[in-house]
């Protein structure tokens, strides 16, 4: 069998506001636009990959939070209505998504071999979280690729960012190995914001962009520092600074997505492409692509 390939890895944040602002037929609420900077960022990301062939999307969302190990969606199809418990006014999305159970099982089994606590989620009544759906929709609105969906283990809450990162780096390694062994071409998505301090009020029209800005200068500085590392190919430095970043920027990287992504990409030293940056109710969000397809085989 041919060797699998990671064609790209992306930071692909999931605030439901983005889906809300797009007005896709699957979502019940109706918006007058909003958050264009980020939506154009997603447009550029989709453009960048439109001629690239791949078989599946592997995604880790911080809104499927598990405390007992790392879980994987384990049935071929999930269909239901996903209502965001925090922003139900913005996100009530009728989803129908397919799972690449074979690739899922490979990652699951490898993770178990590596000593990680893992579990397949095979309850058909399970509702898929809005983070998975938002990132899934914004990245691939036609939903024509099967997904691997990985839960966010809350080891950071239980122990520390360092322990979380150890586990996520391990999970990233086995994810990479499983993809390579599967012979499939895959896109890997970490679904999280950067700085993550929200406003605690919402304007009467949620998409009123005159109200949108970062919550504080400190958050801005952290976001820009991370973006600088993305653009200059310093993945290791991001991992090194993850504890400070996660704590000081209250970053959503606490869910492990970014650490896992960088490990799955084998801690890249090539520059990533920044497709967009913007704030959503004060949180900082970047859409970033690591085009591994252009660097595969490249040995430093």
């Amino acid at each position: 069998m041919t060797q699998g390939e990671i064609v790209a890895g992306c930071l692909a944040p999931h605030p439901p506001h983005l889906v809300y602002a797009e007005n896709p037929p699957q979502n019940e609420p109706v918006a007058e636009g909003g958050w264009e900077q980020l939506r154009w960022g997603y447009e550029r990301l989709r453009d960048s990959l439109k001629d690239v062939e791949y078989d599946a999307i592997v995604l880790l969302s911080p809104h499927w939070q598990t405390y007992v190990g790392t879980h994987f969606l384990g049935l071929p199809n999930f269909q239901s209505l996903s209502v965001d418990p925090v922003f139900p006014n913005l996100f009530r999305y009728h989803y129908d998504l397919n799972i690449d159970v074979d690739l899922t099982k490979r990652i699951h089994d490898k993770a178990a071999e590596a000593g990680l606590a893992v579990k397949m989620m095979e309850n058909p009544d399970f509702r898929v979280d809005y983070g998975t759906i938002t990132t899934g929709h914004m990245f691939n609105p036609s939903w024509d690729k099967p997904l691997v969906v990985i839960s966010s283990n809350r080891s950071r809450d239980y122990y520390s960012v360092e322990v979380m990162q150890e586990m996520m780096i391990e999970l990233g390694k086995v994810t990479r190995e499983a993809i390579m062994e599967s012979g499939k071409k895959v896109v890997v998505l970490a679904s999280n914001s950067l700085s993550h301090r929200h406003f605690t009020t919402e304007s009467a029209i949620p998409e009123d962009m005159s109200k949108e800005h970062i919550t504080s200068h400190a958050m801005h500085l952290w976001d820009m520092r991370m973006i600088e590392y993305f653009k200059s190919g310093q993945a290791q430095r991001i991992l090194n600074e993850m504890p400070e970043f996660t704590e000081q920027a209250i970053a959503e990287s606490d869910g492990g997505g970014l650490s896992w992504l960088l490990s799955t990409l084998d801690t890249p030293t090539y520059p990533a492409t920044l497709h967009g940056y913007g704030t959503i109710i004060g949180t900082g969000n970047a859409i970033v692509e690591w085009p591994e397809r252009q660097h595969s085989g490249a040995v430093e």
Partner: peptide
Amino acid sequence: WVMVDHDFHDLGS
């Protein structure tokens, strides 16, 4: 609706 726990989904709905 039907509630399924994020962690303990194997116990049932």
